[in-house]
Design a protein around this nucleic acid. Structure first.
Lengths: 186, 186
DNA sequence: CCTTTATGATACAGTGTATATCATAAGCTA
DNA sequence: TAGCTTATGATATACACTGTATCATAAAGG
């Protein structure tokens, strides 16, 4: 592990924090690298020693966040509702970070990234009990997109209802309607 | 109506067409105004005689598109499924335009714009039959966001299934699960 | 046909990006 | 702690893009 120098970690942490702040205060496009390095309190040129451009930093933050989320949720793929509850609890650890990520979803290609990861999981879990005449591609896209949509809503501070309840709602509003047997609804 | 000069309409049409093309070929952020005016085959400085910046042009395209969609769908607010079918038929008139709009949703604030328009419509239509324990804010956001999500999926050329079927799917996957009586499901 | 106005071409200032250089400070290792 | 290594800060610079101003020309409308 060649990346242990405290200065490197310190600089990158300051950059990520400043990036999240400025992205929520202003906007991704309007934030300049001068704004960013000033807020992070590092030299302007130092930025390029770590990332090639603004988007590269965004992607680094995204990949780190995805790793964190996957490892906290991966073992629960056979219990969708619990998995969702756990996911929302995890989002609560760093809400601003995830708010930033959904806000910049089209720049970081968040949806495509999560589709790649989530589709296999979804197919394995739902394919055999999928309601007839629902194209599997549409179903997978609907689940992933609708969950991200509710996450974006929920991350607004005034909307942060109980994670357990969010799990139940996602199950009844998104998951169950895809299944063959409507009697299973809660 | 002071805006009838043919040259003005011609210039704006060329700019909008070029904008849609470049936004789908490359990306919104990477597209420069030089690229745009060159593709549109107009002088660089001419752009600023019509729009103050790139985002201003995007908003003009968005507002025009929203007007078109509203007027084609407005009368059907009491028949959600037919409204959706009609909506998808309308999207088919200019698919690239709407693809561009969903791709740039965070810059144009598409979701907020549609929420403003759609929430009232949704409340009136669904509030009295909403399943217990579902926050109305969440319900409205879920409908709007999930429909836009499926529109984005459907606009991919290989996913353009029959509009009527899309109306049915949206009804059974998004609308009905919000309602109190599960027996109404198709 | 004549007036009005939108356009094209060009020049220019201002701003942001990305790279290079060098002295200094901070971290690592023995 | 001493000495080596490396990340940082400050600065200069080339380059691209934005947005404005100007003027001659072409196109539209009456």
């Amino acid at each position: 592990m060649p990346k242990t120098d405290r200065r490197i970690n310190r600089t990158r942490r300051q950059l990520a924090d400043a990036f999240i702040q400025l992205c929520l205060e202003r906007d991704y496009e309007q934030m300049t690298l001068r704004d960013l390095t000033e807020r992070a309190d590092i030299g302007y040129a130092t930025f390029f020693r770590h990332y090639s451009d603004k988007e590269s930093l965004l992607n680094a933050i995204l990949e780190e966040s995805i790793s964190t989320l996957i490892s906290s949720v991966n073992a629960l793929s056979d219990q969708p509702e619990l998995m969702m509850t756990t996911l929302f609890k995890q989002l609560l650890e760093q809400p601003e970070r995830y708010q930033m990520l959904v806000k910049t979803r089209h720049i970081s290609h968040l949806l495509e990234r999560v589709m790649t990861i989530g589709s296999a999981m979804f197919i394995e879990q739902f394919a055999h009990q999928l309601k007839a005449n629902i194209p599997p591609d549409l179903a997978a896209r609907h689940v992933i997109g609708a969950v991200i949509n509710l996450i974006e809503w929920w991350l607004e501070p005034s909307n942060r209802i109980d994670p357990k309840r969010m799990g139940e709602l996602i199950n009844s509003l998104i998951m169950q309607p895809l299944k063959d047997n409507p009697a299973l609804e809660r």
